[in-house]
């Protein structure tokens, strides 16, 4: 627990972080930026879990453990996404979304 800071302030920050992530995912035109936006969303939930655990239910460690698992899974997800992006880059020399639109309707 941090002295002088209530849970409301931290949850506001994580919520803002979450919506920045969603906004970034929907507006960015670059695959890497979209990936970064997804990471923002995941990190918002990680902070959420830890903070809720610490402030509201400090006698159990469920939230903290959950956070560790999310970090590990997020790393795996990023690694896989990056490897697919690299493979795509080898073929079309671009990581822009508009160049990945062969299939439509």
């Amino acid at each position: 627990m941090i002295q002088g800071i209530s849970i409301y302030e931290i949850l506001t920050v994580t919520t803002v972080l979450f919506f920045i992530g969603v906004y970034g995912f929907l507006t960015r035109k670059n695959l890497i930026s979209m990936l970064i936006s997804v990471e923002l969303i995941l990190n918002a939930s990680v902070v959420n879990f830890v903070v809720i655990n610490k402030y509201l239910y400090p006698d159990m460690l469920q939230g903290a453990v959950y956070a560790i698992f999310i970090i590990a899974v997020a790393a795996a997800e990023t690694a896989l996404a990056i490897s697919i992006i690299i493979n795509l880059y080898r073929q079309i020399n671009s990581v822009e979304v508009k160049d990945t639109e062969v299939m439509k309707h």
């Binding site: 990936l35 997804v38 969303i41 299939m103």
Partner: peptide
Amino acid sequence: SESGIKLILSAALASGV
């Protein structure tokens, strides 16, 4: 590759939300 990147990005967004 395109379908792979579309799947992984949307899946990551959905699981994040």
